[in-house]
Design a protein around this nucleic acid. Structure first.
Lengths: 340, 340
DNA sequence: TACATTTACGTAACCGGTTACGTAAAATCA
DNA sequence: TGATTTTACGTAACCGGTTACGTAAATGTA
């Protein structure tokens, strides 16, 4: 073993015959320390391979350089990208990323929040679990002075900074695209309605149908689609109606994939007889046959913006009144919706 | 604002007219504290919503419950899965996950290690960057008594616990499968040879060719394939030879995908004229046309085992002599290599 | 009943930084 | 030249826990 003892400011102080306080100040480049002493301290610190004990610092200042991140699933492509974005910006500003996953469970989410509060993180960046209910746990964090930043799956009632897509705009654009391609009976595979983005996408979808004077049938809206299996089941229902839809717009790529599989199994031509559009631009969407039209959400950018929102909030101490940061998604048109 | 002050053991002590030391011990269920007092402390702690200050604890004990994780890319499917596995086990044992990505840069890797040392993490779980050179940075961590666990991309010379796949065995199985399917001129898209797993896969490949008495041509081994573009270029070279290979075994799925695209563009029938096999079982491999034969590495399991290895190492203080943990990969046979 | 243990808790130092406050010496000013 | 400000650093308390050591009271033992 022979574990190396870390050098502390006390070691440096002894070496230079000054007090630890002066060393501390010298290392912070405090005005009250002379140039020569500062230089000496710096050199000795380097020589002794000094590394500050973050916990001691944290204990005495009460401030942390750690960002707590809570996501439903780390190994979901979208969230992995967001986390990657978070990490990039965090590293630049010398922050660290403490990560938790909820597995879409509200109980886990509560535990994660508590854990991060205990860890005294500088902020909590969170995307809510599918089963998330209520915001008391996050209110708790705010009570302790920990700013909360929500992204993607957010709850507006919890008054925090939010980083979200312009779901309404992009849904309109997508419906317009489908209409242009001659699709007239568009169905929607909607996500869990307790999550605002899925609610937004659905209501935008219905508005868009009206705007573009397309057929609206309540049965064309299938709820709670979030997995391939959900998507398959919904598609089976839709496609065996007397009057089946001629296009399916899924609120998640994985559901669109399920729908595509069902269409193939039922020998329904895509995009000829049925147009299919997903949401998220998962990597596999460009590899299916036909490739899937989908929506790029700018996931990495979303992660970056989340950290930047936190930084800005730190400077101007009035985060709560800020409007949400809107990331503009883009429609990625591929074969599955192109009749022409 | 009205920031809530956290209740400390001092608050509890005052409430009960005992000393903070007793509170501390009561909360640890120390033998030397009476049953009644313990119960009182517990109740008061609950009543006052006491949350221990981890930093204070850490400062005084010097031990941390945080696992440091270093991966090349968080948003790579394989690594995201490993991290997910790590998080699962970590949570169960009340540990936290601090995550860093190197973007395949050695400089970043060094910085990450330093950061984690400063953070006083309980251990460092790392998969080396493609450009990683030398192990001095990780030696440094060991010097400070921080155990290092390597997974997937490891360096044996750094004597630490390692979690790895049985690359040799699975490569043999794969080559055998290709031979069974009648492929006789198998090429290999090898990864960067400074990373041991890619070296292992390559040398196992060459051994397997000999074992199964298949043609070995040095030109059939293409080096440094790690991206789709690499894979494309290598495939183009291979497929425009006078005597092109009739199968391509890529050390990474993304290269296999590139090869598949090139084959399609050159109108070469897969799997008829050319068999293609990847490595990693990325989600898209089952969605290509034809679907890609590949190798499932057990990524989530790898993450879990990494944490367990750390835990075991904590109990028996003799981690260094332990043999590597071998995760058995499995061959996922799909259309791209099935002639029959 | 006298002595040895055990039980239950208090005392105080320590972990490694930060910082409000105090002060001697040097520099500036009237 | 004496008064005042500035510069440069020391002193000591504090952050919130942990723990070696000490001690009084309760219990056990001879």
């Amino acid at each position: 073993m022979a574990e190396k003892r870390r050098t502390t400011i006390y070691d440096i102080a002894r070496e230079l015959n000054i007090t630890p306080a002066s060393v501390s100040r010298a290392l912070k480049d405090d005005l009250s320390i002379g140039k020569v002493t500062k230089e000496l301290v710096r050199k000795t610190a380097l020589k002794l391979n000094y590394k500050p004990n973050v916990n001691a610092r944290l204990l005495s200042t009460g401030t942390s350089k750690t960002l707590g991140v809570i996501v439903p699933k780390i190994n979901d492509h979208f969230f992995a990208n967001v986390v990657a974005g978070i990490e990039m910006v965090a590293r630049q500003s010398n922050h660290h990323v403490l990560i938790c996953q909820t597995d879409e469970s509200f109980d886990n989410e509560k535990r994660c929040v508590e854990l991060l509060i205990n860890q005294n993180v500088a902020c909590i960046i969170v995307s809510l679990a599918a089963t998330s209910a209520g915001t008391r746990h996050l209110q708790e964090a705010k009570k302790y002075g920990i700013p909360v930043i929500q992204f993607d799956r957010t709850d507006e009632s919890l008054r925090t900074q939010r980083i979200i897509n312009d779901n309404e705009q992009i849904v309109f654009e997508t419906v317009k695209h489908l209409a242009t391609q001659g699709y007239k009976r568009i169905a929607h595979l909607a996500g869990p309605q307790n999550i605002d983005i899925y609610r937004d996408r659905r209501s935008a979808f219905e508005k868009a149908l009206r705007q573009y004077k397309l057929l609206y049938k309540p049965e064309y809206i299938q709820m709670d689609c979030l997995t391939k299996q959900n998507g398959r089941e919904a598609a089976q229902k839709l496609l065996s109606m007397k009057q089946p839809p001629d296009a399916i717009f899924a609120a998640a790529d994985i559901c669109a994939l399920g729908a595509l599989q069902v269409a193939k199994e039922m020998n329904i031509a895509v995009p000829g007889t049925l147009g299919i559009c997903g949401f998220s631009n998962e990597p596999y969407t460009e590899l299916t046959t036909p490739s899937l039209t989908t929506i790029e959400q700018g996931s990495v950018e979303m992660g970056k913006q989340a950290v930047l929102a936190f930084m800005n909030g730190q400077e101007s101490r009035q985060a709560r009144s800020l409007p949400p940061v809107i990331i503009q998604p883009t429609l990625v048109v591929r074969a599955s919706t192109c009749r022409v």
